[in-house]
């Protein structure tokens, strides 16, 4: 938590410094309220994931404040802070999928064929730093972002299939669909606390104060810590956020 406060303090200081050192006319402040859709996805999609049965929308709210300073006619710079959730809930068919059923200190690893239901929650503070290019009322943005997670969950269950314990020659353990017949897992503690990536987007200031915006946050860092090898592919958080902005000044 300490890191979060330090980061927030730094951002506030930076924004204040920007506001003080430049003419207020050069600096525009915005509130943002958005909603995100996306997932922590392996790219490219491994052959072991066969199909997506269900993709449920999650409460991926994003609220934040930005400062955008124009430098010249078109170019500018944007910095801000957001509090947002990147959540995902999917149900997928898998085959030959390396899996670890995990509860408390107990694990059962092997290769699973069947269905996997996964739910991810990632509440975080995100700080984007973007170059902007303005054409009339539209501001195109691109640049890196850093996120610090304040709450995280990566859990779910394998069901309606079977696990070969350890490897493909291991005993076959059938898993059912009822709650006490399936294999639960929880990898929340293996998730990274710090994420970073690239944020590309655009703002459209359609009225004096109100605007619409869209951002694509493409995670460069993976979801899990390096030591975590249960899920063989790197899962990158890739989320698109759309919402409304309000220009304060």
């Amino acid at each position: 938590m300490k890191r979060i406060y330090i980061l927030m303090a730094m951002v506030v200081m930076a924004l204040t410094a920007m506001a003080q050192t430049t003419l207020l006319d050069d600096m525009k402040f915005y509130w943002r309220l958005g909603y995100g859709i996306g997932g922590n996805a392996p790219l490219p999609m491994p052959a072991t994931i066969r199909s997506l049965n269900k993709f449920s929308l999650q409460p991926n709210m994003s609220i934040g404040v930005d400062a955008n300073r124009q430098i010249g006619d078109h170019w500018g710079i944007l910095a801000g802070i957001r509090f947002e959730n990147k959540g995902m809930h999917i149900d997928a068919d898998v085959k030959n999928y390396h899996m670890e059923i995990k509860q408390g200190g107990e694990t059962l690893a092997g290769y699973f064929r069947g269905k996997v239901d996964t739910q991810i929650t990632q509440w975080m503070f995100t700080v984007p730093l973007q170059a902007t290019f303005r054409v009339n009322k539209v501001n195109i943005k691109a640049g890196p972002y850093v996120s610090i997670l304040t709450a995280k969950n990566f859990s779910g269950y394998a069901y309606d299939g079977y696990l070969r314990v350890d490897d493909y020659t291991g005993p076959k353990v059938n898993l059912g669909t009822e709650k006490n017949e399936r294999g639960d897992y929880d990898f929340s503690n293996d998730m990274r606390d710090l994420q970073w990536g690239v944020d590309v987007g655009a703002d459209w200031q359609f009225s004096n104060h109100f605007g619409l915006y869209a951002d694509l946050q493409w995670g460069v860092s993976g979801t899990f810590k390096k030591q975590f090898t249960t899920i063989e592919q790197t899962l990158r958080p890739i989320y698109g956020i759309v919402g409304i902005s309000y220009r304060i000044n």
Binding site: G39, A41, M45, P46, I49, R50, S51, L52, I238
Partner: peptide
């Protein structure tokens, strides 16, 4: 992204 499934292993 989610629909580009590969051939079955």
């Amino acid at each position: 992204l989610v629909s580009c499934f590969k051939e079955e292993p």
